[in-house]
Amino acid sequence: MKKLAIAAATVVAGALAAGPALAGKDLDTIKKRGSLVCGVNTGLAGFSIADSQGRWTGIDVDVCRAVAAAIFGDANKVQFKPTSAQQRFTALQSGEIDVLSRNTTWTLTRDAAQGMVFTGVTFYDGQGFMVAKKLGVKSAKELDGAEICVQSGTTTELNLTDFLKANNLSKAKAIVFEKIEEAVSAFFAGRCQAYTTDASGLASTRSKDAKNPDDYVILPELISKEPLGPAIRRGDEELFAIVKWALYAMVEAEEYGVSRANVDQMKTSPNPGIKRLLGVDEKNDMGKLLGLKADWAYQIIKQVGNYGDVYERNVGPKTPLKLERGLNALWSKGGLQYAPPVR
């Protein structure tokens, strides 16, 4: 049934993508409406989840808030629309949502053929391995002969097979489980020596489902690429630029050391880069070029935070998910987060 629906949605989506696109109208609609409608996950810890009081938190949610702060100067002017995995693309194509920020992996098919464009990467995820510490395994390449618990019927399983073949680990064996919970409990019960899924999932499983999280280690190798980021409908270059640069401004701010806590002091900084970013320098009004107010980036940082703030608050080491920065560190610190200069 699900497959049918997806197939139907894809066919319709394809037909729609081939049709004429409406140019520049989306931003006007958003401004007229007075709020941004953002498609998010119905509930995924660290990315988009409502807490005990129904307030939305998470990286994907903060991205929406940042875009709203840039457009309206008010991060609260967002309506969140929870969407299922099957619903998300239709919701974007039909105009029900303006921005899709729902842990969606950026792939060529989605970018080219589904009437949507990705604006950047907010979280670099990838498939990893977890093993018991007492095995003393330091690298995934040492897993020859191991039994590896994995959920069946997912790209995770295919990635694992590819990885084992590519690295000549012919003695390693995949133990497949229909449900992810079964795979997890089998791993913790000692049925397998290793467990594999997306790295963010591994970290949360270790911190929440293990009796003693310190008994397990996550191996450094990632065997697949899962860049997650927001997407918008094709055909509105203005909105595309705004969403893209809202993300870059957050990364740029972290690079300059401008955070939510110190953004007001930083306004007086003599650094021309910071001046440009925060819109203090009237001669270099970056906001105007995007059709925004001069303080667009200031509002993002003040109300939402820089990329580091958002990461630490939602998924970082101090949260229950306990994810290290890894690939998501700034390029200057060995990660992949890199912003073109705001100038």
Partner: peptide
Amino acid sequence: IVSLTDLLLATKDIALADVDWRA
């Protein structure tokens, strides 16, 4: 299934999506 937060989805995706309580 279509993301309306009825009793079931509210339990599954709001209450149980909280990592602290998902057990």
